[in-house]
């Protein structure tokens, strides 16, 4: 059977085989990692005390960048909406577009991507460095479960704080668009607010927050996984960091589509 694969086809076949085995092994390790996290979740006494600090680092410290991005997103949304709607469509539709787009898509996704860079890289680099300098081993020898001590607080913090940050980002984006509408588009507050409220349903907010929480979970777990499984030196830490950011950005977009398919 194997003799069929000969000559020029051997190298590509081997490559495909190796990649498949590598991917499967990676997924297996990731599954094990997740199972470990699940187990460590029960150890609240260990991860509980570290949670607040991580919430500060992952959530509160991410607010400035998230708000900055959201503000400019809001401004651009308002301007482009009014540009697209020239003449034919009433102005208050700027409010409709800003509200819906910000809540359903741009608020969570842009914040998610920004935090994939900021938080994901930070986590992967930190854990990666701790791994290559044997700090994680040291933790284990001192009787700590590093998953409970290092990983779970970060994952929980991201799960809790991403929705909070996204809530602020949504509000910021809408306020910025509002200010833009008033100052640059000659709209009035009642017009803009009318558009905002026109098609609003509370589920929009729920959807936004569900997305944000799933992004937080993805970014933190992926960051932790790559950091945790780093082996080597500084270069390996760099590689893990890059992989964590790239993969979590991709997963964010996939999740984005997934929620759109399942929840909308």
């Amino acid at each position: 059977m194997m003799k069929v694969i000969t000559g020029a086809w051997r190298a590509p076949a081997a490559w495909v085989g190796r990649s498949a085995v590598g991917t499967a092994a990676g997924m297996g390790r990731f599954g094990q990692f997740l199972a470990g996290i699940g187990h460590a979740l029960t150890d609240v006494r260990t991860w509980g005390p570290a949670l607040v600090a991580q919430m500060g680092r992952i959530g509160v410290a991410s607010l400035p960048i998230a708000l900055f991005i959201a503000a400019f997103t809001g401004i651009v949304l308002a301007l482009q909406a009014s540009y697209t709607f020239t003449g034919a469509i009433p102005k208050y539709f700027v409010g409709v577009l800003v509200g819906k787009t910000m809540l359903l898509e741009l608020g969570p996704v842009l914040t998610g991507l920004a935090l994939a860079g900021r938080v994901g890289a930070n986590i992967a680099a930190e854990l990666g460095t701790m791994r290559v300098t044997e700090q994680i081993d040291a933790l284990e020898t001192l009787g700590y479960d590093p998953l409970a001590h290092l990983v779970v607080p970060k994952v929980m913090a991201a799960l809790i704080m991403f929705p909070v940050v996204v809530a602020f980002a949504n509000a910021m984006g809408i306020v910025a668009a509002w200010a833009t509408a008033l100052n640059l588009l000659d709209m009035t507050t009642p017009e803009f607010v009318r558009g905002l409220r026109l098609f609003f349903v509370p589920f929009d907010v729920t959807y936004s927050l569900i997305k944000a929480a799933s992004f937080g979970l993805a970014v933190a777990t992926i960051g932790c996984f790559f950091g945790f499984t780093t082996w080597g030196g500084a270069q390996a830490v760099g590689r893990s960091t890059t992989q964590a950011v790239v993969l979590s950005s991709m997963v964010i977009l996939v999740l984005d589509a997934f929620w759109a398919v399942t929840l909308l």
Binding site: V52, V60, V164, V165, N170, A171, R197, P202, V205
Partner: peptide, 22 residues
Amino acid sequence: RVGAVLIAGIVLVVVGTIWLQG
């Protein structure tokens, strides 16, 4: 700080939703 941000976030979500509903 974390507590303040958390509470502010929850208030923001609740009040914002009610406000957007009119």
